[in-house]
Amino acid sequence: MGVFKNSKREIESEIFTGSMADISFLLIIYFMVTSVFSATRGLDFALPEDNTETPEIKQEDSIDVFVQPGGDLQLDGNPMAKEQIADKLLPYIAETLRENPKKPVILRTDPEATYGNMIYVFDILRTPVEDGGIKIETISIPTQREISNIWTMLGVAQ
């Protein structure tokens, strides 16, 4: 008796992957176009909490840093050129804080100065003072409205 060989053909089962590359590259392009490596660092400052018992700071009890148009400073009323700020601002503050470590620094900026001028000084003030480990405890940035209110309270015409 003749034996018949099993000639049943096996059906190959495959997942069609031809379009996978297209889909993958489409996704890559989408993420590349819509994704950003945004700048996510900067200078922080916390605003004071509502507190009715906030002590009033007199001008002579603080270090007054006034940024002028062009970037020069008035430091406690004394002029300081922009080129000198990096070298002279922190030593002056360290010297003053040695007498009274609690003295706050008030950073005022002329409305005509640029934001870059203000940030330059604020950055230096935020840099840790290496001289004797003295640290500025409080840096206050009053707004024009707050300054006007103080002058009005004091009865001083601007």
């Binding site: 934001y115 940035i141 707050e146």
Partner: peptide, 18 residues
């Protein structure tokens, strides 16, 4: 803010946030 912005503009925003 752009570094060349007049501080007056930043001051107004700071005041609004305060």
């Amino acid at each position: 803010a752009d570094e060349d912005v007049h501080y007056e503009k930043v001051d107004a925003v700071l005041d609004a946030l305060k």
